[in-house]
Design a protein around this nucleic acid. Structure first.
Lengths: 216, 216
DNA sequence: ACCTGAACACCGTTCAAGT
DNA sequence: ACCTGAACACCGTTCAAGT
């Protein structure tokens, strides 16, 4: 059932997942889904956790010497899963019993942070910040244009170039930032953008750990 | 109209904003809303930008010597707006013409980053990372429990303590991270959590700027 | 124990008709 | 130019009835 739900979501976006469509795909009646799930909210939570099962599996092979490296790779696996699933961000990591894999993932990230030797509060904050960042960026990147691209109406390059052109047409005195980044934006790679911000955060985390190790 | 829409969203959450409820509040018919807005999506985009108007106003007074300080304060104003409006994260910063304030906010953040003297690509990445982080964390924090709290069913403290208890009951060998942070989680302050992660990212950004200034 | 599908309440959107 | 509200297609959810 969850395979079917994730399939519908991946193929045609969040609006394609209806009880009727899911029942049709499974070859059953609308009502029978309610035997396994109590609401659409729970269906989406369980679908999210179903995706996290794969994320968890893929991130289990990272056991390097540097905990920061492990964190980077673990975060990137999650990013890969959320990048084209904007719905995932809104439903995972709800502290509910129907999301055991999300909790395990949180624990995994946390264990890498633990190796940095920070205090409990800093450890809690750092692990939450990393996951929050991944979700935030992925939600940002997987928005409206993506939906139109799913329907094949707009190509990504054209969309970016169009937005960049609009920025270039603005007054440079008033919009120096948009002018500076217009070229970068038009040709940017989403994964690069994600990685850069992640590295900023991980650099800050490494700095915090070093400071603490020096007893500051 | 947008005041009415934001009012409904703030009072009873995203599901309370329906065309019928909005029409009733405005004392008109359902169809008349379509004279001003072409779809519910656009209504939410404009409502989001309506909120951003206030965010923009509040963040205009930051002009300190340290661009990083400006960034921190500008980010915190946005956080304050999104914290209790989980719907905002999904609708703002779509590069559409109906969101001029979001674009202005992006420019504002970007101008502070520009003062750090990085290259165009790093500038683009840093500004996007900061905003992505704010949205991600705020979306994380403003989830399900908040909705139940809106209905007055669960108090925040009880909810956190309950989750922490569930973590404490797990095997400590297998879940060292959750055991380490259970106490912190039970008593944590959302704004503290947000600020800590933001500072990690800003520390990393400062480091990057210093490296570049030294010509590395 | 598990499934069915008609029925219900509600939603976004359209549109002929009004002022 | 702006508003009205019935009508339409569709949705999540319920439930009496089936196996």
């Amino acid at each position: 059932m969850l395979d079917g739900a994730v399939g519908l979501l991946d193929e045609d976006g969040e609006s394609a997942l209806t009880f009727r469509a899911l029942a049709a795909r499974l070859g059953g009646g609308v009502g029978s889904i309610y035997w396994y799930v109590s609401s659409k909210d729970e269906l989406l939570e369980r679908a999210a956790d179903h995706v996290m099962d794969q994320v968890l599996f893929e991130s289990e092979r990272f056991h390097g010497d540097d905990p920061i490296d492990d964190l980077r790779q673990t975060a990137m696996v999650l990013y890969g899963a959320v990048e084209h699933r904007p719905w995932l961000g809104s439903y995972f990591m709800r502290n509910s019993s129907s999301q055991p894999n999300s909790l395990r993932y949180y624990e995994r990230v946390g264990q890498s942070v633990l190796r940095l030797g920070l205090g409990p509060r800093e450890t809690f904050h750092a692990a939450s910040a990393i996951i929050g960042y991944v979700i935030g960026i992925a939600a940002d990147l997987g928005q409206q244009p993506t939906e139109e691209m799913l329907r094949g109406e707009v190509k990504r390059d054209e969309y970016l170039e169009q937005a960049a052109d609009a920025w270039r047409a603005l007054d440079p005195e008033e919009w120096p930032f948009l002018h500076t980044i217009a070229d970068e934006f038009a040709t940017h790679d989403d994964t690069d953008q994600f990685t850069s911000g992640l590295d900023l955060m991980l650099d800050g985390l490494r700095l915090q750990a070093e400071r603490r190790a020096r007893g500051e």
